[in-house]
Design a protein around this nucleic acid. Structure first.
Length: 305
DNA sequence: AATTAGACCAACCGCAGGCGG
DNA sequence: GCCGCCTGCGGTTGGTCTAAT
């Protein structure tokens, strides 16, 4: 929704506020003809009275193809938490690991989730996610591997030799998939050298420095340093986020780790909360049925088993 | 039925970095 | 090196929706 009323004009006669269908069509047509980029030309070449910034945002968040507008699946939520734990508020980077998701969407998700947990006095990450974050950090898994992969791709295009085929030349998502495949409890072995990697052997190299420990006060209001809160988790915190999101009167705190499961929106079947998909591949989680907006109403229903 | 609080989400703003003149 | 333009990113705001009271 808009911050200012629809049809409001900013300086220079530029329109602000919510986009109309006609405006969307103009922008879509322009991108179809000229491709993405050069956003300031949109106003010159169409009747659209929007600044370039606004056009880019509208395209990126709403109009570009292959956007997924369904609610986040538990697997995606877990990936967001994990990536956030590793690289912080790098929404654009995180969104690159979740196909069809925008940085704005992920940022909104995190902010509301963060506020909720903060109000409840809970740490930002569920204990199992926090453990995984600490493990990945300890093993120096490179969360910026996608950038390396991009660079490798650029090298290839330029006729330059490809770098050695290392696991961290692939997106972090894939590393998590392997981790997940191993059950999450069995620690994969990581190597700092480039020796051959059998399955379960993860080669890691060219790592950025790990974040240094900082006091909570030094962090932004919505950032956490997992090195501080890690490990010391009260049993009462072992409750899935969805219970906080949509409190259930029958919800009780338990003294031992509950097994979580979730029910698909149609209630047809129950699946384990973690590793919902067989391989954690977001792209295989399924698109929303065309014309059906699942944003509201279709929530993941966590229950204790 | 009215009110309130919280969740959700679209969109704006400021800033930084890249690039060409 | 400086400047202006463009683009991308992250933070923030504020409207709408929904459930609870």
């Amino acid at each position: 929704m808009a911050r200012s009323g629809g049809g409001m004009e900013g300086s220079g006669g530029l329109k602000k506020g919510p986009w109309t269908q006609a405006e969307d069509k103009l922008l879509r047509d322009h991108v179809r003809r000229h491709g993405e980029g050069n956003w300031n030309a949109v106003r010159r070449e169409t009747r659209l009275q929007r600044c370039g910034k606004s056009c880019r945002l509208r395209w990126a968040n709403h109009l570009r193809p292959n956007l997924r507008k369904c609610p986040f699946s538990p697997e995606e939520e877990r990936q967001i938490l994990l990536l956030h734990g590793l690289i912080g508020n790098k929404w654009a980077r995180i969104s690159k690991h979740l196909s069809g998701r925008t940085d704005n969407e992920i940022k909104n998700y995190w902010n509301t989730r963060f506020k909720r947990r903060q109000r409840a006095g809970l740490p930002p990450y569920p204990p199992d996610v926090e453990r995984q974050i600490k493990l990945l950090r300890a093993q120096n898994v490179n969360p910026f591997a996608d950038a390396d992969a991009d660079a490798a791709h650029a090298n290839a295009s330029a006729g330059l030799p490809a770098p050695p085929l290392l696991y961290d030349n692939y997106p972090l998502l894939n590393q998590m998939q392997v981790f997940h495949h191993l059950g999450g409890s069995q620690q994969p072995s990581f190597h700092q050298d480039g020796s051959a990697a059998a399955f379960g052997d993860i080669v890691s190299s060219r790592l950025p420095p790990l974040p240094t420990a900082r006091t909570q006060a030094e962090l932004h209001s919505n950032q956490f340093d997992t090195s501080i809160s890690g490990g010391l988790v009260d049993q009462s915190m072992l409750i899935g986020d969805e219970h906080l999101l949509r409190p259930n009167p029958s919800m009780v705190k338990v003294s031992s780790m509950p097994a979580l499961s979730y029910r698909e929106p149609d209630g047809s079947r129950m699946l384990p909360a973690h590793g919902a998909g067989s391989d954690g591949d977001v792209s295989s989680l399924g698109q929303c049925p065309p014309g059906q907006d699942l944003h509201r109403g279709a929530t993941w229903d966590f229950t204790f088993e």
